[in-house]
Design a binder for these strands. Structure first.
Length: 467
RNA sequence: GGCGACGUAGCCAAGUGGUAAGGCAGGGGUCUGCAAAACCCUUAUCGCGGGUUCGAUUCCCGCCGUCGCCUCCA
């Protein structure tokens, strides 16, 4: 069974056939950096990170480009409010986002271009569109003429006629049609601007992605991705611009993730209805966010709330729990072979992910493996046998980008003391001094040191950590 | 108004033309001095009404409800 990807363009799952066999060129629209990023941005980055990781797991070499939009109305507006240099402000948020990517265990994209650093390529692109008659300039602005593209609307399923009725926004009178969009904007005083054939100005939003995609990946790519709020007009316009010039399909697969909602509403700055990545990571480890994102399908909208966060946290603990070592002393390998278990998990995992990256189903395979491991441990499997399955668990969880680690570093320093307390407690238990023994357990638990009494003695680990 | 998506147990969430994965929470057990963890058992007539079919949660139509986009947005 081949790997299938749902493409917004055809509204179907398609077999993945790349331009160059064994290689995937993927462009993902990154954030406009005018403010702190929220967990919705994180969701998008996590989704495409998992797609990338899985493609690599399946043997593809992935070129992953993610852009930062750093020249934009919103950046300029916000910079003015904060009395900041627009590009400096953007840079600050880019640095922040780069850090978020690391914190969230997102593989570094192959290239992270920013609009401000790609101006020549963008101008070249606009010039070409003007030269070929797809765009026109007016007073230093350049617009793409939508009516020149007979296929306009094919991605979003919109028709120009339908849309005109709905346009309530003030239309720029100089445009030949309200749907025409800016490729180049003339600069107002104080705005970041660059020399161009049309005077000082800056690129429009849509053209930057097309130009950067073409520059870093070529005129044709395999996957173009982003949030589904970008389908119209952004990606529609990108298709128009690019395909008018190349006459070939810009991207083979258009992949869009669903929006994350907060409290049942779209996350929106205006209502203060946002949770920043930073705020989330102050409360929970990155794996929690990843797990809650992956628990639903990437194309579905996801309502973020405390309940699903708590569920993800517990689910994560459960997965980590499977990595606990075998019970010492019990050692009957022959009765608990791990191979059938790991084979099944592998197979289910791949089958799920091959089906348009069905991570909920993939997680289900992971949980089945978790249960299998725990059953084997309870039944007395040896560490050697258990380790095989645990390695498989780490492997496929790793494909989803889960770290499955906890706070480390303290362990070696603390272990001596903890061991000492355990020894004392063991003697207390032997002499049935339960109250004192329980007090040690309770107080250690408050410090994040969790004790588990078993037949073979007591084992301990830090809260949330296994291993 | 236009385009699109969704509606599955208390919550989250897969999925199939032949009576439904997984997780969280709940209930009952096993284990334990107690607990924790783990394991076992247990909780769904798949929004409503029609239609197609031997048979639909799954296909079609209508309705109701929720949401996204149509303007900057991952």
């Amino acid at each position: 069974m081949a790997l299938q990807i749902y493409s917004t363009l055809t509204r179907r799952k398609e077999n993945l056939v790349t331009l160059n066999s064994g290689k995937v060129r993927m462009y993902v629209c990154g954030p406009t950096v005018y403010d702190r990023a929220h967990i919705g941005h994180a969701m998008s980055s996590i989704v495409f990170d998992v797609i990338r990781r899985y493609l690599e797991y399946r043997g593809f070499e992935v070129q992953h480009v993610m852009n930062y939009t750093d020249v934009d109305d919103k950046v300029i507006r916000r910079a003015r409010i904060l009395s900041f240099e627009p590009l400096k402000l953007a840079e600050k948020y880019i640095d922040e986002y780069d850090q978020h990517l690391k914190d969230l265990n997102i593989l570094e994209p192959t290239v992270r271009p920013r609009a401000s650093e790609e101006i020549p390529a963008i101008i070249e692109r606009v010039e070409e569109l003007v030269a070929k008659g797809f765009a026109y300039s007016v007073d230093g602005d350049v617009f793409f003429e939508v009516s020149r593209d007979p296929n306009y609307g094919k991605l979003s399923g919109r028709h120009l006629d339908d849309m005109q009725a709905g346009v309530r926004i003030e239309v720029d009178e100089r445009k030949r049609s309200p749907a025409d969009f800016a490729l180049w904007k003339s600069a107002k005083p104080g705005e970041p601007s660059w020399e161009s054939p049309w005077g000082l100005g800056r690129p429009g939003w849509h053209i930057e992605c097309s130009a950067m995609s073409a520059r870093h990946l070529g005129d044709e790519i395999d996957i173009h991705g982003g949030g589904n709020d970008l389908i119209f007009p952004h990606h529609e316009n990108e298709i128009a611009q690019t395909e008018s010039l190349t006459d070939r399909a810009f991207a083979r697969y258009w992949v869009h993730n669903g929006m994350m909602q907060l409290g049942g509403e779209a996350m929106s700055k205006s209502t203060g209805n946002v949770l920043s990545i930073e705020e989330f990571l102050e409360m929970h480890e990155a794996d929690v966010l990843r797990l809650l994102v992956l628990n639903s399908h990437y194309r579905s909208p996801l309502s973020f709330n405390d309940e699903i966060t708590e569920a993800a946290k517990r689910g994560l603990d459960r997965i980590k729990g499977a990595l606990k070592p075998a019970i010492p002393g019990d050692d009957d390998s022959s009765r608990h072979p791990s191979k059938p278990l790991t084979d099944k998990a592998s197979q289910d995992f791949i089958q799920a992910m091959d089906d348009d990256f069905n991570t909920p189903r993939a997680l289900s395979a992971i949980y089945e493996l978790v249960r299998g491991i725990n059953q084997a441990r309870d039944a007395g499997a040896s560490q050697q046998e258990l380790g095989v399955a645990q390695d498989k668990l780490r492997e496929i969880a790793g494909v989803l980008g889960l770290r499955l680690t906890g706070p480390r570093g303290l362990e070696s320093q603390a272990s001596g003391l903890v061991e000492l307390l355990l020894e004392i407690r063991e003697e207390l238990r032997e002499s049935e001094h339960w109250a004192l023994a329980d007090r040690i357990r309770d107080r250690l638990s408050e410090q994040g040191v969790m004790l588990e009494d078993g037949k073979q003695g007591t084992i301990w680990h830090f809260d949330g950590q296994v291993g």
